[in-house]
Amino acid sequence: MYEIFERLLKEKNLKGADVTRATGIASSTLTDWKKGRYTPKQDKLQKIADFLGVSLEYLTTGKEKEWEPKLTKKDERDIKNALDDFKNQLRTDTGIMYDGEPLDEEDQEAILAAIEVAERTAILAAKKKFTPKKYRK
């Protein structure tokens, strides 16, 4: 992990003293880290990562976590509205039937649960596919 720290310092043309001044972390902490006697606690690592402009994950592993889309409040509202519309359609006389019989309440709830999962999955897949890289933070 210290190797990643050293590489970042070199890339950014910085010294350990710059990190010490900016973060308030003692130089002895950095020295002990370099010698393998000590690994800084997460709060100190976060200060270092923030100063270097990288994520904590990158500082500790050298890899960035892949961006994952998240549902917004608007997405949640849209899903709820779509489910409500579909639920209303199920409750009508012309709702879904199986083998000539209307579906009972339990089967309708199972269908609604499956549709909710499908809606969520579709929205997340679309966000992952169509969100430009510059907005993936």
Rank of each mutant, 00 (worst) to 15 (best):
M97P: 04
T60R: 05
K65L: 00
I79M: 01
I111Y: 05
N88D: 07
D107P: 08
D78S: 03
I111L: 13
E68H: 04
A110G: 07
T94F: 06
F86S: 14
E105L: 05
Q108I: 14
W67L: 06
S55A: 05
K87M: 07
A113E: 12
E68K: 04
V54N: 02
K70C: 01
L83G: 09
T61F: 04
L112I: 08
E76S: 05
K80N: 13
G95H: 04
D107E: 15
T61Y: 02
T92P: 10
P102C: 04
I79Q: 02
A113D: 13
T60M: 10
I111Q: 06
Q108M: 15
L90I: 15
E101S: 07
A82H: 06
W67V: 04
D85Q: 13
L59Y: 02
I115H: 01
Y98W: 11
A82M: 11
E64M: 04
A110M: 15
Q108D: 09
R91E: 11
E68A: 04
D104Q: 12
E105W: 06
G53L: 08
K73N: 11
A113P: 06
D78L: 04
V54D: 00
D99G: 08
M97I: 14
P69M: 04
E76C: 08
A114W: 07
E68G: 02
D84S: 05
I96M: 15
F51L: 13
A82F: 10
W67Q: 05
E76D: 10
L56K: 12
D84Q: 11
K65I: 00
L52G: 09
L52V: 12
A113Q: 14
K63Y: 02
G53R: 08
E109F: 01
R77Y: 06
P69C: 01
E109H: 04
Q89R: 14
N81D: 12
D104V: 09
G53M: 14
E109P: 08
K87G: 09
F51W: 10
E109R: 05
I79Y: 03
G100I: 07
Q89E: 12
W67N: 10
G62R: 07
L103R: 14
L83T: 09
G95N: 11
Y58N: 00
Y58M: 01
I115Q: 02
D50C: 08
R77P: 05
D107R: 09
D84I: 13
P69W: 00
K74N: 04
N88T: 02
D78A: 11
I79R: 00
E68I: 04
